[in-house]
Design a protein around this nucleic acid. Structure first.
Length: 208
DNA sequence: TCTAAGATGGGT
DNA sequence: CCCATCTTAGAA
């Protein structure tokens, strides 16, 4: 079924409003084909990072070896190792030279669940893909995808035609170092999804 | 060279 | 609450 859905084109990611793009990505499907196995997850949680006005962004006011791919054009993949353990998957947006990105934080497994569980075999009770580190592991994404694009066969995004997601926003997770920018409501998630990550912090907004 | 800290997650 | 684990950025 997924094969008939429209793959997102470069224009989607070249747009300049990373916050809007992060919101629109909720409900779409992330597809990978590593190890000759199709795995599909519905995106249920994202965060926006703006390289020019956002202290939480790795590329805020500086270019380093790590953040170099964030300066590529929209549609490139930015993966980095967090806490020495987790590979966090980001999508670069905006035109070349403007280092914006969307962090994918949680997926609802749609296809290839057995493969996802196999990749996450270390933990038995844990959720398969509800968190930025776990979803990368489930989908087979690691540092070797850093700098690739979403327009090849191994990793891409497709539209979800039957997408009835109710998306709401709140503060981002784990960015306290960003001072006042830590309060920006740039985290987006599907209100009804059971697959969003569990926030350790208290939410800004009461969304009962 | 040296070192503190990190866009986390799982276990106690 | 605790800590695994290692790259990176910035300081010395």
């Amino acid at each position: 079924m997924i094969d008939s859905f429209e793959k997102l084109s470069e224009d989607f990611f070249l747009r300049s409003n990373v916050v809007q793009i992060a919101r629109e990505l909720v409900g779409k499907f992330l597809v990978t084909g590593f190890e000759n196995t199709l795995t599909v997850g519905k995106i249920v949680e994202t965060e926006a990072y703006d390289g020019r006005r956002d202290k939480a962004c790795h590329a805020y006011h500086k270019k380093t070896p790590r953040t170099e791919v964030m300066y590529k054009s929209g549609g490139h993949v930015y993966v980095y190792l967090c806490y020495g353990i987790h590979h966090l998957f980001n999508i670069v947006t905006n035109e070349e030279g403007k280092a914006d990105a969307v962090l994918i934080r949680a997926l609802e497994p749609i296809e290839g669940l057995e493969k996802m569980k196999e990749r996450r075999r270390l933990s038995k009770k844990a959720k398969v893909s509800s968190g930025p580190g776990t979803l990368s592991q489930a989908m087979g994404i690691n540092i070797s995808s850093n700098g690739d694009t979403l327009f090849g066969p191994k990793i891409y995004i497709v539209n979800n035609p039957s997408d009835h997601v109710e998306t709401i926003s709140d503060r981002r997770i784990g960015v306290d170092y960003a001072e006042e920018d830590a309060l920006l409501p740039w985290r987006f998630f599907d209100k009804k999804s059971k697959y969003i990550s569990k926030p350790k912090q208290k939410p800004l907004i009461r969304w009962s």
